[in-house]
Simulated scan of single mutants.
Amino acid sequence: MRTRSGARAATAAALAAAIALGAAGCVPVDEAEPEPSSSGTVTQQLGELTVAAAGSMKGYSRARFPHWRDTGKNCDVRDSVLQRDGESIKLSGCNVVAGRWESPYDGLVFTDPADVDIDHVVPLANAWRSGADEWDDSKRGDFANDLTRPQLVAVSMRSNRAKGDQDPSQWKPANRSYWCQYAADWVTVKHYWRLTVTSAEKAALTEMLEGCTWANKP
Score class of each variant (00 low, 15 high):
residue 162 A to I: 13
residue 46 L to C: 04
residue 181 Q to P: 02
residue 127 A to F: 03
residue 165 D to V: 00
residue 67 H to D: 05
residue 139 K to L: 08
residue 163 K to G: 01
residue 105 Y to F: 12
residue 131 G to C: 06
residue 151 Q to V: 08
residue 83 Q to E: 09
residue 133 D to V: 06
residue 147 L to E: 00
residue 71 T to D: 07
residue 86 G to E: 05
residue 139 K to R: 10
residue 149 R to P: 00
residue 147 L to D: 03
residue 69 R to E: 04
residue 174 A to R: 13
residue 162 A to C: 05
residue 89 I to C: 04
residue 127 A to K: 02
residue 94 C to V: 09
residue 76 D to G: 10
residue 65 F to T: 03
residue 139 K to P: 03
residue 149 R to W: 06
residue 132 A to V: 01
residue 136 D to L: 02
residue 131 G to W: 10
residue 119 D to T: 00
residue 97 V to K: 13
residue 107 G to M: 12
residue 93 G to Y: 14
residue 160 N to Y: 01
residue 52 A to G: 12
residue 171 W to Q: 08
residue 47 G to A: 07
residue 53 A to R: 15
residue 91 L to T: 04
residue 158 R to S: 08
residue 174 A to K: 14
residue 56 S to E: 15
residue 121 V to Y: 02
residue 160 N to A: 00
residue 98 A to I: 10
residue 47 G to F: 12
residue 178 Y to F: 12
residue 72 G to N: 14
residue 160 N to V: 03
residue 44 Q to L: 01
residue 123 P to V: 07
residue 44 Q to W: 03
residue 110 F to P: 03
residue 90 K to E: 11
residue 56 S to W: 15
residue 80 S to E: 05
residue 91 L to I: 05
residue 71 T to W: 07
residue 118 I to Y: 05
residue 70 D to V: 14
residue 52 A to P: 14
residue 116 V to W: 08
residue 100 R to C: 00
residue 112 D to L: 07
residue 158 R to A: 13
residue 143 F to T: 01
residue 77 V to Y: 01
residue 89 I to F: 05
residue 111 T to S: 14
residue 130 S to E: 13
residue 114 A to K: 15
residue 112 D to A: 10
residue 99 G to F: 04
residue 56 S to V: 15
residue 166 Q to Y: 09
residue 143 F to P: 03
residue 55 G to L: 07
residue 154 A to R: 10
residue 109 V to S: 13
residue 178 Y to K: 09
residue 180 C to Q: 14
residue 60 Y to F: 13
residue 65 F to R: 08
residue 149 R to D: 01
residue 116 V to P: 08
residue 99 G to N: 09
residue 114 A to C: 12
residue 101 W to L: 00
residue 155 V to T: 11
residue 102 E to I: 10
residue 44 Q to M: 02
residue 157 M to P: 04
residue 130 S to I: 11
residue 80 S to R: 11
residue 110 F to G: 06
residue 72 G to C: 15
residue 157 M to Y: 11
residue 153 V to W: 00
residue 112 D to M: 05
residue 58 K to T: 15
residue 52 A to W: 14
residue 163 K to S: 01
residue 164 G to V: 02
residue 141 G to E: 07
residue 158 R to Y: 15
residue 113 P to A: 00
residue 66 P to N: 01
residue 121 V to R: 07
residue 80 S to Q: 07
